[in-house]
Design a protein around this nucleic acid. Structure first.
Length: 552
RNA sequence: UGCCCCGUAGUGUAAUUGGCAACACGUCUGACUCUGGAUCAGAAGACUUCAGGUUCGACCCCUGACGGGGCAGCCA
């Protein structure tokens, strides 16, 4: 271990190791998603944490589906989760495991508990159980079925499995303590009857273990040493301990940490599902979604997400992480690796009146990495520049093109604005400029210094592409923490701006889905994997460049 | 109201286990620059929620208050 400052989980593991708590066995962690939705950036944090521990301690990392509820789970989610975990680079080797594969063993252990008199079949229905559970301040009441004989319980439980009873008519409950101050210990439910097809077990089972019963057993079966989960399971730990101790089986150490919250988005699967189902976005992988697949489609790299996880660290206090930390991580990565190219999003025509002919200029592919080389950029007397790079009446400090002023065309010449042409409505439609032949980039002959450099494309050589500019999905930092309003009330109506015909430098013409670029002075973009066709490239803006001029 | 957890610059985390609070992001300067990016140099910003106590010494240990979060699914 060589990380400079360890988080509290590493410290616990170090202590365990020092105390030889696990004997000869290696450290084993796991990521246990329920396949009822796509993974989000919060899951990515957990994956990085769990996989990181296994890697740092030369241990093992399992991917295990917690698939104990057939009503919510689907194969589509299983597939997406596997893809996302792989993409993030968390190596589970060949261990794609399923809690449902352990159902038989779990059943046997349940029988063991019944035999010990520690579990019973209850005939109370859901309402009755709820009302007899008590409240936060009052103890619960024991079920009238709590003291059935072992024989009767065994018989009933077996018949539950055989499918003799309808949904909800019976449950298997642990016999613990109905007046425990910890509500989780008030005879929690271990099995419920659900006649429903399971995405993996199909119709093999009609009783399903609850998470509380199943989770610790899954960890035990896999020999997990450190069972890392989020804070809300802290109160459940005594229950898991109880089960494991009663059964006398392998006992993972559970450690809880605070889940990730990010500004300007929501992070609950339920809410994300709603955004998808009600078509606020175009799917789980919409580039505005905080899902792993959304970030992937938007152009984020796995490295940047891993680095983000490293930056934010791990702790037990709940926090709201500024999205700026994530944006830093992706800019930092893309700055070093993305191919540069020029693109004009909102074109303004410029005619260079004293230039004729055509030439090719050298553009640096990545100033941070000379090994990426240079490319040729065609130049002619008719080009397009960005509308915002020209102003008739500039504010102070503006150093782009103004009437009578000069500006450097990136990798080309310095031009001077001689004439402004407008339409009937008074809008600027074209600029007439002259260029200074002595100022060609790279010749070193220019004595001129000019304050601004702007990007451009040759009218004759450029190609059109669709560009999608994304903004935050919500207008407030914490859309789901308002007491009165629903998170949907805070959706940003301008979270997506589509530019159907942006003009791109020819170099990017043959790019493939997923290719990443920096559009100089704009930001980082990638070729969309969903809407790009053989006819038209669609670029997603991953993130803008930092902008110390046009600050909002 | 019962139980459990938490409380360090704007944000996220540190503080070698009790030795005069550090790092990253963000913000603001300045330098450099053919990207108002990057890079480089620097600055501002925290009486560590509060009050007691233990100690030569407390962010750290103890007590109490205050504040935040979680728990009353046959969800996970």
């Amino acid at each position: 271990m060589e990380s400079k400052s360890k988080n509290f989980i590493y410290e616990i593991i170090d202590e365990d190791l020092k105390a030889n708590k696990w004997g000869e066995s290696t450290i084993c962690t796991r990521f246990p998603p329920e396949p009822n939705g796509y993974l989000h950036i919060g899951h990515a944090k957990s994956i990085c944490l769990n996989y990181g521990i296994a890697r740092d301690y030369n241990g093992k990392f399992n991917l295990r589906f917690d698939d104990t509820n057939p009503e919510k789970e689907e194969q589509e989610y299983v597939d997406s989760i596997i893809e996302d975990v792989k993409w993030l680079g968390a190596d589970f080797e060949d261990r794609i495991l399923y809690g449902s594969d352990y159902f038989e063993q779990m059943y046997k252990w349940a029988v063991d508990l019944i035999k010990k008199g520690k579990a019973y079949v209850d005939d109370l229905n859901a309402d009755e159980i709820r009302s007899s559970r008590g409240t936060l301040t009052e103890a619960g009441k024991e079920s009238p079925f709590r003291n059935r004989s072992v024989e009767e319980n065994l018989d009933l439980f077996e018949r539950m499995r055989k499918g003799e009873f309808p949904n909800g008519s019976k449950t298997l409950r642990a016999k613990i303590n109905m007046s425990s101050p910890n509500i989780n210990l008030r005879d929690p439910i271990m099995y419920r009857i659900v006649h429903d097809e399971h995405h993996r077990q199909e119709n093999k089972w009609c009783i399903y273990p609850t998470y509380d019963w199943a989770h610790g057993l899954e960890d035990a079966i896999e020999g997990i040493t450190h069972s890392i989960c989020t804070l809300e399971f802290e109160n459940h730990r005594p229950l898991y301990d109880w089960f494991l101790d009663e059964l006398g089986i392998h006992h993972a150490q559970q450690i809880e940490f605070a889940r990730l919250n990010l500004t300007y988005t929501v992070m609950s699967k339920r809410k994300l599902l709603q955004l998808v189902k009600e078509n606020y976005v175009d799917g789980w992988d919409d580039p505005r979604m905080p899902t792993v697949s959304g970030f992937r489609r938007r152009g984020y790299t796995p490295e940047s997400i891993r680095n983000f996880a490293e930056i934010i660290g791990v702790a037990k206090r709940d926090a709201l992480t500024d999205i700026a930390l994530l944006e830093f991580a992706i800019r930092d990565d893309l700055n070093k690796h993305a191919q540069r190219v020029m693109a004009v999003l909102h074109p303004l025509k410029v005619v260079i009146t004293n230039y004729s002919g055509e030439e090719e200029l050298d553009g640096v592919n990545n100033p941070e990495d000379p090994s990426m080389g240079i490319r040729k950029i065609p130049f002619t007397n008719e080009i397009y520049i960005e509308q915002t790079d020209f102003m008739e009446e500039p504010p102070k400090g503006y150093h782009r093109l103004i009437p009578g002023g000069e500006v450097r065309l990136r990798y080309a010449y310095i031009i001077k604005c001689e004439e402004v042409i407008k339409n009937d409505k008074g809008e600027v439609t074209e600029l007439r400029c002259t260029y200074d032949p002595d100022t060609r980039s790279g010749t070193g002959t220019s004595k001129k210094k000019v304050k601004g450099t702007i990007h451009w494309v040759s009218a004759k050589h450029t190609f059109e592409a669709e560009v999608r500019l994304y903004d935050r999905l919500f207008t407030v930092e914490s859309p789901d923490s308002d007491k009165e309003k629903n998170f949907l009330d805070f959706m940003n109506p301008n979270s997506l701006e589509i530019i159907p015909n942006a003009l791109i430098e020819p170099f990017a013409k043959n790019s493939k889905k997923g290719n990443r670029f920096q559009f100089e002075r704009h930001g980082y973009f990638c070729v969309d994997t969903k809407f790009t066709s053989s006819e038209k490239l669609v670029f997603n803006r991953t993130v803008t460049l930092k902008d110390s001029w046009g600050k909002k």
